[in-house]
Design a protein around this nucleic acid. Structure first.
Lengths: 221, 221
DNA sequence: GAGGTGATTTTGACCACTCAAAAAGAGTAG
DNA sequence: CTACTCTTTTTGAGTGGTCAAAATCACCTC
């Protein structure tokens, strides 16, 4: 039986694992992300390995097996679909849906997932711009630049916010930095640790480097 | 912390407890309903009593305290609202929503409950005709006669189906016995254990006593 | 190589929930 | 009152998940 704790570990490993899927995820990473002690992770990871959901190399880290990857992908699919559903259908704020989805992702059946998917028109991204894995649990995370790395003085479209905390999301919303919005980076000041933007319509926004790195963008077509 | 197991026990006691709320619920009743052994119930009930959610009289039974009643009422509210939501908004069949709601009732937040309630227009009954407790968790279960006890040759309205099993619900649907439908009991035959009905529109239906007792009706106004 | 530092693993314990089986109580028929 | 039955309670054990603290390992610096 796959418990919701197991699902949490798998999803966590999927999210922590470096792009491409080749790398190992350390116990400490998982422990931090899941707010659990190191020892707990070690023992849990062993049972995951016993179930062939991860390969575990002591003192080095874990990697998802194909089975683990698929399971994690399905959990992530449910999570992101639920987030979008809560925003679009139930009218919740995008800053409050993460925790809710964190619980719902473990209990909704495939039937319900299908219905939500249909009702939402088979969406590809959630309210934060995170890609929604397909029905087979496969995700592809496009490699987008952040406001810290994108070309200057070019119109770009906000594509994704990589910090799910309510605080940051509320800030992003207040600044008009939701997926789909068009902005232009007018200047970056290394020593001042500041990025200056202009929103379509003219409003000027200033962000620290740390915040700017959490806003991913794509070129306007 | 109120675990979902605790919620299950409380909801079960609420549903098993005789109308009016005065009576005691036995360990065996709970064990059967929850598909758990007697010993498990005894020990669990003790911890519920320690948390002041029930009063426990050894060898006799349990009764919900006001705190337990309120908690159970909230769980039931979530359960029934979710059932209706799944049918009305997600288009699931009324025969498949019970199990789904059984899990969802433990994880949805008050925010989500409020939104669902609003979206559904503050409904008072779920798809099976079961009354939905109010925001304070208070339920009142009207005392309705079944097809076994209602007046003969009088038009009555189907109000509630008291068997949540998919099999029975599918049967009821096939016979057109959903809440709101108008029927007339034309005859009851004690020895044949059969109840004959006529649906509005003329179609004749035959039910055994056991099945007939699961369909509650109210007089047409 | 020899330490030292930081991460990892092991150990022993605990909590919530569960079962199977044994013990004890309640109620009934004679 | 006795015997029998049915229910309830107790006991002992197991599972999944967790922690704190001790032991161990890997790696970097000298």
């Amino acid at each position: 039986m796959v418990t919701s704790t197991v699902e949490d570990y798998l999803k966590c490993i999927l999210l922590e694992q470096p792009r491409g899927g080749g790398g190992l995820v350390s116990m400490g990473q998982i422990a931090t992300a899941l707010r659990v002690t190191n020892g707990t992770v070690t023992s849990m990871v062993k049972t995951l390995a016993d179930s062939n959901l991860v390969t575990y190399e002591p003192y080095s880290g874990v990697r998802l097996t194909p089975a683990g990857l698929q399971l994690a992908g399905h959990v992530l699919r449910r999570h992101r679909l639920v987030e979008l559903f809560l925003v679009k259908v139930l009218g919740l704020d995008w800053s409050e849906v993460h925790d809710e989805a964190e619980r719902l992702e473990h209990v909704i059946s495939e039937r319900v997932v299908e219905r939500m998917d249909e009702l939402l028109g088979f969406p590809t991204v959630d309210p934060h711009g995170d890609p929604i894995p397909g029905p087979r649990g496969v995700v592809e995370e496009p490699d987008l630049p952040s406001l810290l790395l994108c070309p200057v003085k070019r119109r770009v479209r906000v594509a994704r916010i990589t910090d799910q905390s309510p605080e940051f999301l509320r800030l992003a919303e207040a600044r008009g930095l939701m997926p789909g919005r068009i902005v232009t980076v007018s200047e970056r000041d290394e020593t001042a640790d500041a990025v200056q933007l202009r929103r379509e319509g003219g409003e000027r926004i200033s962000l620290g480097f740390r915040a700017a790195s959490k806003v991913l963008v794509e070129p306007t077509s």
